[in-house]
Simulated assay, not measured.
Amino acid sequence: MSDTLREKEKRKLLMRVRRIRGQLDAVERRLEEDASCSSVLQQAAACRGALDGFIAEVIEDHILENFVNRTSKRDDMRVQAAEELVEIVHSYFK
């Protein structure tokens, strides 16, 4: 992956994190305002969806960088990356 592409992906991920932070701030505001449970739950569900999307994007980037771009990676690095990815996915679904 080129440095330019990495920077673009990094900026995209940072923007996602900032949007998620904004959604979490909205949950906090709703709690402080004694909003209804349904309102809090709706906002929390939006946060979870946004975080799930972020995780999917990071996993995709990891796969593309470590498994598709074979020209700059040695086999042992790819095996290690695969093992890390499996651990992350398992921890996410526990």
Rank of each mutant, 00 (worst) to 15 (best):
L51I: 13
I55V: 13
I63S: 04
Q42W: 14
A82C: 13
R16W: 13
E28Q: 06
G53D: 08
I63E: 06
R74W: 10
E28P: 02
H62F: 03
E87T: 13
R48F: 09
T71E: 14
N66D: 05
D76H: 14
Q43P: 00
V68G: 04
I55D: 01
V58K: 01
A45G: 10
E7M: 05
V89Q: 03
R21D: 15
E33G: 01
E9V: 07
C37T: 11
R74D: 09
V58T: 02
H90T: 06
E33L: 10
L14I: 07
R6M: 14
V68F: 04
V86A: 04
E84K: 08
H90R: 09
E9M: 07
H62Y: 00
I88F: 03
R78L: 03
K12V: 10
E57R: 02
R21F: 06
E7G: 06
E28I: 13
R21W: 02
A81L: 01
A44P: 02
E32Y: 13
A35N: 00
A35W: 03
E9S: 11
C47D: 01
I88E: 01
S38L: 12
I20C: 00
E28W: 10
R30V: 03
A35Y: 00
R70E: 10
S2N: 13
N66H: 11
S91E: 10
H90M: 09
I59Q: 01
R11Q: 11
R74F: 14
C47Q: 04
R30P: 00
V68P: 06
R21Y: 05
A56G: 11
L24G: 01
G49D: 11
V17S: 12
G53M: 12
I88V: 13
R70N: 08
N66P: 04
A35V: 02
L14W: 02
E65Q: 15
K73Q: 09
L64E: 13
L41Y: 11
F54N: 00
A44F: 11
V17Y: 05
R19G: 03
Q23V: 02
E28L: 15
E32P: 05
D34V: 04
A46Y: 02
R48Q: 14
N66L: 03
H90C: 11
K10L: 15
E84H: 08
E28S: 12
I55H: 05
R16L: 09
R18W: 07
E65F: 02
L85Y: 00
E84L: 12
V58E: 01
H90P: 07
A50E: 01
A50S: 04
R19P: 00
R48Y: 04
I63H: 06
D3Y: 07
L31R: 15
T4S: 07
S36R: 05
V27T: 02
R21K: 12
L85C: 04
S2L: 06
K12S: 13
K12M: 09
V68A: 14
A26K: 06
K8F: 05
V68H: 12
D25T: 07
F67L: 13
